[in-house]
C-alpha cells in the first residue's frame, strides 16, 4: 500500500544524500567517510525504487539490485585498501595522510 507522494520520497532521498555528503566532507576518520559514501549510495537507491514504483516499471528495482552488488564489491575493496594503508602509515585520519600533498 502506497502512503506517501513521490515528492516526499525524493525529498527524503535528497536529504539522506546530503547528510552522507556532509559525512564525507566533515569527518576525519576514513572509515566514517566511507560510511557517508555508502549512505549516499543508499539514498540514490531510495530515489530509484520510488521512481520505479510510481512509474510502474521494474527497471528501477533491477538497477537497485545492480547498485547493491557493486556497493558490496566496493566496500570489500575499499576496506582492504584502508587496512593496507593502516599497515603502512599506522593511521586512518585523512589529515595525516597527506604525503602526496606536499
Amino acid at each position: 500500500m502506497i502512503s506517501a507522494s513521490l515528492h516526499t520520497y525524493l525529498a527524503l532521498s535528497g536529504l539522506l544524500f546530503v547528510i552522507g555528503f556532509f559525512g564525507v566532507l566533515l569527518r576525519r576518520n576514513t572509515l566514517v567517510v566511507f560510511m557517508g559514501l555508502e549512505l549516499m549510495l543508499v539514498a540514490s537507491t531510495l530515489a530509484l525504487v520510488a521512481f520505479s514504483r510510481y512509474n510502474g516499471t521494474p527497471d528501477g528495482n533491477i538497477f537497485v539490485f545492480f547498485i547493491l552488488t557493486v556497493a558490496a564489491a566496493e566496500v570489500a575493496v575499499g576496506l582492504a585498501i584502508i587496512v593496507a594503508l593502516f599497515r603502512q602509515r599506522h593511521t586512518v585520519q585523512v589529515d595525516q595522510l597527506n604525503s602526496l600533498k606536499h
Binding site: 560510511m35 525504487v49 520505479s52 514504483r53 537497485v64 547493491l68 566496500v75
Partner: peptide, 26 residues
C-alpha cells in the same frame, strides 16, 4: 521504506547484504 514501496525483495537484499555483511565488515 522499500517495503512501503512494495520492493520486498530489495528490502530483504538490503538487510542481508548491507546490514548483514557490510556493517559487520565495518
Amino acid at each position: 521504506l522499500f517495503v512501503q514501496l512494495d520492493a520486498y525483495l530489495l528490502a530483504f537484499v538490503l538487510l542481508l547484504v548491507y546490514a548483514g555483511a557490510v556493517v559487520a565488515l565495518f
